[in-house]
Design a protein around this nucleic acid. Structure first.
Lengths: 118, 118
DNA sequence: ACGAATGTTCGTAAGATTACGTACAGTCGA
DNA sequence: TCGACTGTACGTAATCTTACGAACATTCGT
């Protein structure tokens, strides 16, 4: 069986934003964007967190908002970022978000360095 | 009395995304971006919705996430989009979102035309 | 066919979000 | 100073979100 995904034209920016406005789901997108083949378990291992059932919820949010493809393949689910669709509908959005997430880490690390020692 | 706003470096992208992942708040940002002087009441009138107390909640979310400035001025609250800070931290993000919101409306209107008549 | 592997579904629960009315605090104008 | 105006604070309520364990369905390898 396969999942229902929104068509490209059915994607809505507010759904994309609220999907990515969650640390776990944003981290998922960063993992998928970094490349490589991924399934639920591999992402779960990389993030080193949460239960499978919790992730099932996050997969649905990401799928329903149009951010990822999730396709059963054997007993696994192949996961892919819908970059082409997102770039077509919202040029620059995904890159700005991914770059911003990296920037947040940098800024956070800088603040940390300042706090402990000079 | 005035409000607590995050410094530019304290802004976090996930907070920005979840703040804007709400139709009312996204609409607020579009109104502020369109220019002109605004206070709570003027935005409330333009959007033509919801109660003042509900909006007080949304002002807080937008303020705490670093999306807007909210400054008491007389008996009103001046509202301004923190475009410089957002552009500095997340280049291209705000424009991509605002453009995307417009695009969503266009796509929606096209789908509507197709549904009713040819 | 059996057992291991992958991921979903279901039930449950704690906490967050959104919404609204009423009461309140501060400011302005007459 | 009094009343109107702007917006917040508080209480309440419905709904959504996030999380997790246990049971389950499907697929793979042997």
């Amino acid at each position: 069986m396969s999942y229902r995904h929104p068509d490209r034209e059915q994607i809505r920016i507010e759904d994309v934003l609220s999907a990515l406005g969650n640390p776990i789901r944003l981290a998922v997108v960063r993992v998928l964007d970094a490349g490589g083949e991924h399934n639920c378990g591999s992402v779960l291992n990389i993030l080193g967190v949460t239960s499978k059932s919790t992730m099932t919820h996050h997969w649905r949010v990401l799928r329903d908002s149009g951010v990822i493809w999730q396709q059963p393949s054997g007993r696994e689910n192949a996961l892919r970022l819908r970059r082409e669709d997102l770039d077509a509908r919202y040029p620059g959005l995904l890159d700005a978000i991914l770059t911003g997430a990296v920037d947040d880490e940098t800024v956070e690390a800088d603040r940390e360095r300042l706090r402990s020692g000079t």
